[in-house]
Write a protein that binds this DNA or RNA. Structure first.
Length: 794
DNA sequence: ATACAGTCGATTTTT
DNA sequence: TCGACTGTAT
């Protein structure tokens, strides 16, 4: 592809870093300047461009590895990027910072914590920890009387922190005549105080406090400004305000002789200023899906205004998907107003048509997915080339059930995390109690785990004693005898204190020597064994506790693994990794399994075959999004992200009924389906089919008055546009099946249009939601919504 | 202090 | 449906 007249921007003609890149990609790799925005459509090779750009900087000696900071959205993406850069430049890649915003901030904060009243052993609170603390605060402030819940308070504080509002700043402009507002402010302030006392940061603090640090201590900021000369940010469309400000801080020229003009602003003495770091951001506003947690799409849409002199490069050629898939994606996303028109294209040809399917229930839908997977299998598609997406985690259940029954190997990405399990959190709390004794939450957590006979009363007494004597909660444990507790409690606390000390000697030797790499595993085992935690689990009757013991064994194995990978790693490093690294990097053993995940998790991934399930109103777009400004648009982007993950085959499926919270409800086809041109979708079973047979009247069809046969159902008669529509809808509404008065009892035999004959096992539910549990002679056990199922009594 | 039962309630996405 | 939480009995 290297035509001589392609105006190489550097005087090399056969450059391995540029080989196979199209023109905009080359430009993105080679452009040099203060700011570069790479607008990278889905599948346009942005990771390739980013890695080649980094390699290009290194190879030309424009930058040392240590001068490069590359930010990705997930740890997994960071790992992959590092790997790919390593492939290009080798060992050099080691010195670069390639990490998430959060990891980078932790690294900075650990180094600088002493500057502002924290220690480097600070704890990182995840949302569960925050929830626990918030629960306590809401209770203490009796805030429930004002309609504040722990969850709402937590969400609000998180949002404010993302906007870099701290408690005091917020208090100054809050409407304090509103009692609810006043209580909220008090909780916010109290929360901030508690975190500080606990030597802890929550997730949002990691970003916000780093920005604060940079603003309050310009000389600290300068260290990093001088260090990082090239900053690259992936997924820029999903950055929030705090992240944006962090980037701004880092790309400012080092102030050197800067003069503090107040308000955190630094005036520069021009001669002393070096140039700010060069900034490269990559993103696609059509793939912005995290506005709900504070991502601000304006960061990318207004980039050119924010960084004058920025160059913009557009990558529109798609190397991933077939044209049919891209057409579907383009058609959907073009319904979002307020966006720059951008059309993905490929030279790979039309490919397979999109396949649609409508099931009666989510089980029916799942069965379809399973059947299709098996048939793809027989045409030698590997399981690991297949992914199944859904909007909400709960939808995975039905799929799992069917997959297990069909013996399809699968794994669920995301979902309940290993580190979220109670026993794991307990074990980690033990570590934290040793490493960061100021963390009262951690100490309280382990206080009565295992059960030691310490209840709320004793806990309160300890806390009071600590407050009266100006001790930390942890240190109060060492004075159990003075608190005035019963002998049993005293003894138990003395023991706990001794165990913590013992572990402390292993993890943080008093001699000041560095603990050996094996210390984490050893300390962990001492804590779990000597505290009696493991014994309690082993003696338990609960079969689940057996699994918990195994999980803890696994955790110890993780610590060993950590020591192997990080010979210099400390407990603190271990705890950081655990707090920040979701276990999504268990990606390596992806071999031979179908991947199940939410649409959000799917971002940044790609698969040969994609099943996008549950394409229903109230699911995608999700019901809750309807009320939020920009909600439906974000849902459309989410749908778009899902579509564009597919390389060759895309399946869209939905169900006409869906059980939620144990209630069966009627589902309507998603509006997004109608946005895909009918010709692109080959409906194996369209919503119309199910309607006509199932007799359910689709409100979606009526409400939106389709101008044509939206579902691509092959018409029985030649289509006559309006006339055929009338007939179509008439046919649907004219034959509404309503079995409302059908009396069924256990033992009755019935016939189902699809499943054949069977016997009723049980009837549950009331009125219109009565459900028959039927054992079909050949189709197995099914649950049917009696009112609408295509059944008759025999 | 703890175990258990029963009610209640709330159900999106996640670094 | 399922899990968290509350109240009661031991």
């Amino acid at each position: 592809m290297a035509h001589p007249h392609d105006a190489p921007l550097v005087p090399t003609d056969r450059d391995p870093l540029l080989d196979g890149l199209n023109e905009p990609q080359r430009e993105a790799v080679l452009h040099r300047g203060p700011a570069l925005l790479i607008v990278a459509g889905a599948g346009s090779g942005k990771t390739r461009v980013l890695t080649h750009r980094i390699a290009s900087l290194l190879r030309s000696r424009e930058a040392w590895p240590s001068q490069i900071l590359a930010i990705t959205f997930t740890n997994k993406a960071a790992g992959e990027m590092r790997e790919r850069v390593e492939e290009l430049v080798g060992e050099q890649a080691k010195g670069m910072w390639i990490s998430t915003f959060h990891s980078a901030c932790v690294r900075i904060l650990r180094r600088e914590a002493e500057q502002f009243g924290f220690t480097k052993a600070f704890t990182i609170y995840d949302s569960g920890d925050v929830r626990a603390l918030m629960k306590r605060l809401v209770k203490e402030h009796e805030a429930d009387a004002y309609g504040l819940t722990p969850a709402s308070t937590q969400a609000r504080i998180s949002m404010l922190k993302n906007e870099l509002q701290d408690a005091d700043a917020y208090a100054r402009q809050a409407n304090m005549t509103d009692p609810a507002e006043r209580v909220f402010v008090e909780i916010f302030q109290d929360y901030t105080r508690r975190l500080r006392q606990a030597n802890a940061f929550d997730f949002d603090d990691l970003l916000a406090q780093t920005v604060y640090l940079f603003r309050a201590f310009p000389q600290v900021a300068d260290v990093y400004r001088r260090r990082f000369r090239h900053i690259l940010v992936d997924e820029y469309q999903d950055t929030n305000h705090a992240q944006y400000q962090l980037i701004r801080e880092l790309t400012k020229p080092a102030s050197g002789e800067g003069v503090d003009v107040g308000d955190g602003m630094i005036a520069l003495i021009p001669d002393a200023a070096e140039a700010g770091a060069s900034l490269t951001v990559v993103g696609d506003s059509d793939q912005s899906i995290y506005a709900f947690r504070g991502a601000d799409i304006r960061n990318i849409t207004e980039f050119e205004r924010d960084f004058p002199g920025a160059r913009v490069v557009l990558l529109e050629q798609n190397y991933r998907s077939s044209q049919n898939i891209l057409d579907a994606a383009n058609a959907v996303i073009s319904n979002n107003f307020d966006r720059k028109d951008k059309k993905l294209w490929t030279d790979q040809g039309a490919g397979h048509t999109v396949i649609g399917f409508t099931g009666y229930s989510q089980h029916d839908e799942a069965q379809f997915v399973a059947d299709e997977i098996e048939s793809l299998r027989s045409s030698s598609v590997g399981y690991d080339d297949i992914a199944v997406f859904y909007r909400t985690n709960s939808q995975s259940r039905a799929l799992e059930e069917i997959f297990i029954r069909s013996a399809i190997p699968y794994r669920i990405m995301g979902g309940t995390k290993f580190y979220d399990r109670a026993e794991i959190k307990d074990a980690l709390a033990y570590l934290v109690a040793v490493v960061n004794p100021a963390d009262e939450m951690a100490v309280r957590r382990i206080l009565n785990k295992p059960k030691r006979g310490i209840g709320a009363v004793t806990e309160t007494n300890i806390a009071r004693f600590a407050a009266d004597n100006d001790l930390t909660f942890r240190d109060a444990l060492a004075h159990a005898g003075e608190i005035g507790l019963g002998p049993k409690q005293q003894k138990v606390l003395d023991h706990l204190d001794a165990v913590l000390r013992e572990a402390q000697e292993i993890l943080l030797p008093a001699s000041g020597d560095d603990a050996p790499p094996s210390a984490v595993a050893e300390g962990m085992q001492v804590l779990l064994n000597r505290s009696g935690y493991l014994d309690a689990l082993r003696q338990s009757q609960d079969p689940q506790d057996e699994a918990r013991v195994e999980n803890l064994d696994e955790l110890v194995a993780v610590t060993r693994e950590f020591a192997r990978n990080n010979p210099d790693g400390t407990v603190i490093d271990f705890l950081t990794e655990v707090a920040l690294v979701a276990d999504s990097d268990n990606l390596d053993d992806a071999s031979g399994t179908v991947s199940l995940m939410t649409l959000h998790t799917a971002k940044g991934l790609e698969f040969d075959t994609v099943f996008l399930t549950g394409v229903e109103e109230d699911l995608i777009p999700h019901r809750i999004s309807a009320g939020e400004p920009g909600g439906p648009q974000e849902e459309r982007r989410l749908f778009y992200v899902g579509i564009t993950r597919a390389r060759q085959r895309l399946f869209l499926s939905l169900a006409m009924t869906r059980a939620q919270f144990g209630e069966v409800s009627v589902a309507m086809p998603s509006r997004f389906l109608q946005e895909i041109p009918a010709g692109l979708v080959d409906w194996r079973q369209s919503p119309g089919d199910v309607n006509s047979r199932g007799g359910m009247r689709s409100r979606a069809l009526n409400a939106t008055a389709p101008r044509e046969n939206r579902w691509g159902v092959k018409p029985l008669e030649p289509s006559r546009s309006k006339a055929s529509l009338a007939e179509f809808t008439n046919r649907v509404t004219g034959k509404v099946r309503d079995n409302g008065d059908l009396e069924l009892d256990p033992g009755d035999r019935i016939r189902h249009d699809d499943f054949g004959e069977g016997v009723v096992d049980a009837i549950t539910g009331q009125g219109a939601k009565r459900i028959a549990h039927v054992r079909f002679d050949s189709a197995g056990a099914k649950k049917l919504l009696i009112k609408v199922a295509p059944i008759e009594k025999l």
